[in-house]
Design a protein around this nucleic acid. Structure first.
Lengths: 127, 127
DNA sequence: CAGGATCCCATCTGATACTG
DNA sequence: CAGTATCAGATGGGATCCTG
């Protein structure tokens, strides 16, 4: 018997390619993982472990820190169900969802300019 | 005899109000000071000390680090004049100037949503 | 399953002093 | 003036182990 599936389709575990140079972006949403968490929650709520999947290598402690900070800032709501084993779901608030426009602006910038930045960096390092 | 004025009007030493909650923004351009440096250079090139003014409290070491990183990424060009005392000017490249659109997106987001974020934070901390 | 508790380290930032 | 050198502190992120 499979567990009841989330309302939303499963997250692609490789939605954040570690080889993608987005880590070179000259801007960041919140802390290191905040932007990726927002994207994980873009299409509906997710459980703790579900979010953890695409965030390759994040430890539970750090994910908890990230989610707590986001909850504090009103970006996500946390819902704990009194079950055993426990189940907790996180969902974007409208405020959290508003960050998507910023992430989109960042992506647009990247498509237009990131290659140039990386070229400049290589050229500089060649000397 | 006053020194030859920069091409551009002087920077307002209080253009970055330390009491302004922009430090609470859930996003950041580059490192801590990068976004502010971009804004300092928005209207033309500036000398090292000129940039340092509005960036209250930045040490020369950190400003140098910031500017070097920006030069590496092709965001600014550094021009040193062989004079005594030395004179160095920094100027945004078109790539660096392209960040202004992102900064603008951030500002737009702030105007619409930052107050709400701060309210959520206060409410959370009240418990 | 969803975390809490500890420990540790790298990085970032700043303070201070000095120099071509 | 525009840095460099050195040192100290804070902070963030991660590894590991443990638990309701």
């Amino acid at each position: 018997m499979t567990p009841p599936p989330s309302v939303t389709p499963a997250l692609d575990p490789e939605m954040f390619d570690p080889m993608c140079p987005s880590s070179a972006l000259p801007f960041q949403i919140g802390d290191k993982w905040t932007g990726m968490v927002v994207l994980c929650l873009e299409h509906g709520r997710r459980r703790f472990t579900e979010i953890r999947g695409p965030l390759r290598g994040i430890t539970p402690k750090v994910l908890t820190q990230t989610l707590r900070a986001m909850e504090r800032d009103g970006l996500v709501v946390r819902t704990a169900y009194p079950e055993h084993p426990p189940r907790v779901e996180y969902e974007l608030t409208p405020l959290g969802r508003s960050l998507l426009t910023l992430i989109d602006a960042a992506r647009t910038w990247s498509r237009s300019h990131l290659a140039e930045l990386l070229r400049a960096r290589q050229a500089y390092d060649a000397n």
